[in-house]
Structures are given as C-alpha cells and as structure tokens.
Amino acid sequence: MTLAIVHTTRQTARVRSLEAFAAAAGVHPRLVARFVALGLLDPVPGAGGAPEFPDAQLARLARIRRLHAELPLNYAALGVVLDLLARIEELEAQLRHAHPDRPDRV
C-alpha cells in the first residue's frame, strides 16, 4: 500500500511598499499616503514599521479613483460612500445566504 503525500501550500497575500503599491496603481505615493491619512486605505505594518499594502488594496484604490471621477464628492466624503457600499454588499450576501433559492432577491 502506498500513501500519497499531498503538499498544501498556504498562499499569503502579497504586500508592497508604499512606492511599489503606488507604482502598481499608477498614482503618486503622496496620493496613497493621503488616502491612508483619510482612512480610505488600510496598510499593514511592515518591516521596521513602514506601511505595506496588500494587493487587495489595489482594487479598493481603483474603486476610490473611479468613484471620485464619477461623483462630485471629495475624498473624505468617499469614505462614507465606501462604507455604505460595503454594508450593501454585506446585506446582499446575507440575503443570498438566507434565500439561496430566490436569485431574484438580489
């Protein structure tokens, strides 16, 4: 009898320095720092305490830029919009979970 050995690798989210994150997003690092100061982006502490940004924050940054371009709101007000959108997504997920047989619910 032979045993199959299955190796599982845990994928870790890639994180980038402020400069690398800004370059990947196509924005100036100062704009990223401004979004952090406004609470729109949430970096994680990296080596030496420098902020690092998970790749998931790239999608959030793209959403911030798209909303800012489409809505006549300043960046600070976009925080409220982002919170509301996150809450709507959460409620829609709860509805889908509670009523999986009713796709017309969401």
Score class of each variant (00 low, 15 high):
A56H: 14
G49Y: 04
Q57A: 01
P51Q: 07
F53L: 03
V44R: 13
R34A: 13
A25H: 12
P45F: 07
V32Y: 11
P29V: 11
E52R: 10
H68Q: 10
G48K: 13
P43N: 03
Q57Y: 04
R63V: 04
A24L: 13
L38M: 04
L58I: 10
P72W: 08
F53N: 00
A50S: 10
A23G: 09
P45E: 12
A37N: 06
V44G: 09
I64R: 07
R65Q: 12
G39C: 07
A23S: 14
A50I: 03
L71V: 05
L31E: 09
P72L: 12
L41R: 00
L38D: 00
H68N: 14
L73E: 02
P45W: 01
L67N: 01
V27L: 13
D55P: 00
A62C: 15
H28Q: 15
L67V: 07
V44K: 11
A25M: 11
R30C: 11
P29M: 12
E70F: 08
A23F: 12
V36Q: 01
P29Y: 09
A33P: 06
P45K: 01
R30K: 15
H28K: 14
A62F: 13
I64V: 12
R66W: 15
R66D: 15
E52F: 02
A33N: 08
V36H: 03
P72E: 11
A33W: 04
Q57F: 02
L41I: 02
R63A: 06
A24H: 10
L58M: 05
E70D: 15
A23R: 15
P29H: 14
R63L: 12
P72C: 09
A37Q: 12
V44C: 03
P54Y: 03
G26M: 13
Q57D: 05
P54Q: 06
L38I: 02
E70M: 11
E70C: 09
V44L: 15
A59H: 12
A56V: 13
L38H: 02
G39Q: 08
R66C: 06
P43D: 02
V32P: 01
L61Y: 13
D42E: 12
L40A: 09
A69M: 10
H28F: 10
I64M: 00
V44Q: 10
